[in-house]
Design a protein around this nucleic acid. Structure first.
Lengths: 110, 110
DNA sequence: CCTTTCCTCTAGATTGTCAAGGGGAGTTTG
DNA sequence: CAAACTCCCCTTGACAATCTAGAGGAAAGG
């Protein structure tokens, strides 16, 4: 239906992933699903974007992965937000708010 | 003062430039200044980002350039929003709003 | 004259995302 | 049982936008 359905605002994916993990650990597939669901299909995260992001976030020590069985009796890699990840989420949220305000100012300037 | 002062949200530069030109033509330097000013220094647009963006927008027929003297008796290239540029600004603004709403939904999800 | 401000522009590297796949393991359907 | 489907992992290569780090010229101000 949509010619290009993704077109994620660049630089926000990491923040969105951290946010998604705020409440509970999730596996990669679940993270993608949740982002797509809550965004009502606006963001359809591509594996080629998602897994590099995981590696990025792991390398920074913001998330940690562990293999666990799923509810469907399959195995999956669950990503969990670390303490440092929580702090980072806070920082990125603040920075996002700051930039959002700036963009809004420009877009509303007469 | 700021360790890294730029970090522009990717994908928004084109829209911000078009928006800046909405009221009147401006030259490149002036566009950068205006964006920096209205964003209160949050965005400090780099020439290495700005001029490629101009070429992009020109190629699409959304802006058009003309040499004119400035108020300071220098010459400068004034960029003007075309009709198609105006339409594009509208489109991009709508798309931005849509994505912004999606991100906000995710960031506010409990 | 020398420095600063205004104003143009470029080359090269980096980075994040996308397109387009592959694979395996469990579950359902015919 | 076999086929198809869903869940869940992941990679490779290309592309496009931005950043770093410059160059250069022309007018104004000291």
């Amino acid at each position: 239906m949509n010619p290009r359905a993704t077109e994620l605002v660049q630089g926000t994916l990491d923040m969105l992933i951290l946010k998604t993990l705020q409440l509970e650990p999730r596996h990669g597939y679940g993270i993608a699903q949740r982002i797509e669901q809550i965004s009502k299909g606006v963001f359809r995260v591509n594996p080629g974007s998602l897994f590099p992001a995981f590696r990025r976030l792991e390398r920074q020590g913001w998330i940690k992965a562990e293999w666990h069985p799923t509810e469907n009796h399959r195995r999956a890699k669950y990503y969990k937000l670390t303490e440092r990840g929580r702090a980072q989420l806070k920082t990125e949220t603040a920075e996002w708010t700051r930039q959002l305000a700036a963009i809004t100012r420009i877009m509303e300037a007469s």
